[in-house]
C-alpha cells in the first residue's frame, strides 16, 4: 500500500499519546466521523419529515409551487456536486499515496465545483427573491398565492432545506481550503491522511443530501 519513494511527507505527524499507533488513531477518528454524519442525518430529518407531512396535507399547493423551481438549474447543480465528489475521492486516494501535487490539484477542483454550485444556487435564490416566492410572511407573488395558498409553506421548506444544505457546502469549502493548505505543506502521506479522508466522508455526505433534495423538490413536485 505504501510506496516509500513517493512519500513526500515533509511534516511529521505525531500520534496522540492515548493511541497505540497511527492506525489506531486513524480508525478512531474515522469512527468519530461516521458518528458525526449519523448525527447530521438526524439533523436534516425534521425537515424531510415536515416536508412529507405538509406535502401530503397540501398536495395541490406543493405541486403548483414546485413548478416554479427550475429543474435545469437543479440538474446542473447535481452534475456539479457529483463531479466534486469524484474529485474529492481522487484527492483522498492521492493523499494516501503521498502524491502532493495531485492531491492539491484534486482539492482545488473540488473547491471550484463547490463554488460553482453556490453560484447556481445564488442565481436561483436571487430569481426567487425577485419573483417574491419566499417563505411565510415574505411571500409576495399574489398570482401564485391565489392558485396555491400554501405555496409560502413550500418555499419555507425549499429555503430551509436548500439553505441548510448550502451552509454545509460553505462550511465544506472552509474545511477544503484548510486541507488544501495542509496538503501543500506536504502534511499528508501514506502514514497520515486522516483529515483528507474525513473531509472526503463529509463531502460525500453533503453530496448525498443534495441527491435526495433534487428529486424531492425539483422533480417530484
Amino acid at each position: 500500500m505504501s510506496s516509500p519513494h513517493q512519500s513526500s511527507s515533509s511534516v511529521e505527524h505525531h500520534v496522540a499519546h492515548h493511541f497505540k499507533d497511527g492506525e489506531h488513531e486513524f480508525l478512531t477518528a474515522k469512527q468519530g466521523m461516521w458518528l458525526f454524519l449519523l448525527q447530521e442525518v438526524l439533523f436534516f430529518s425534521p425537515l424531510f419529515v415536515g416536508y412529507f407531512i405538509f406535502r401530503h396535507m397540501y398536495y395541490h399547493d406543493f405541486h403548483v409551487a414546485a413548478q416554479q423551481l427550475d429543474w435545469v438549474m437543479g440538474a446542473v447543480n447535481t452534475v456539479i456536486l457529483i463531479s466534486s465528489s469524484f474529485t474529492m475521492a481522487r484527492a483522498v486516494s492521492n493523499a494516501q499515496k503521498g502524491k502532493r501535487e495531485e492531491t492539491v490539484e484534486a482539492l482545488l477542483f473540488t473547491i471550484l465545483f463547490a463554488f460553482g454550485f453556490l453560484v447556481v444556487k445564488y442565481l436561483e435564490y436571487s430569481h426567487k427573491i425577485h419573483a417574491g416566492t419566499l417563505p411565510g410572511h415574505f411571500f409576495h407573488d399574489a398570482e401564485l398565492l391565489k392558485a396555491a395558498p400554501h405555496a409560502p409553506l413550500f418555499f419555507t421548506f425549499y429555503f430551509a432545506m436548500t439553505g441548510l444544505h448550502a451552509i454545509h457546502v460553505i462550511g465544506g469549502i472552509g474545511i477544503l481550503i484548510w486541507i488544501l493548505m495542509r496538503a501543500r505543506r506536504g502534511e499528508f502521506g501514506p502514514k497520515y491522511f486522516t483529515p483528507v479522508e474525513l473531509t472526503g466522508l463529509y463531502w460525500h455526505f453533503v453530496d448525498l443530501v443534495w441527491i435526495y433534495l433534487f428529486p424531492l423538490l425539483y422533480l417530484v413536485g
Binding site: M57, Y58, Y59, H60, A147, A148, P149, H150
Partner: peptide, 10 residues
Amino acid sequence: RSIEIPQADI
C-alpha cells in the same frame, strides 16, 4: 378546511 383552503381537497 374546505372553506378556508378549497384547493386542498377538491
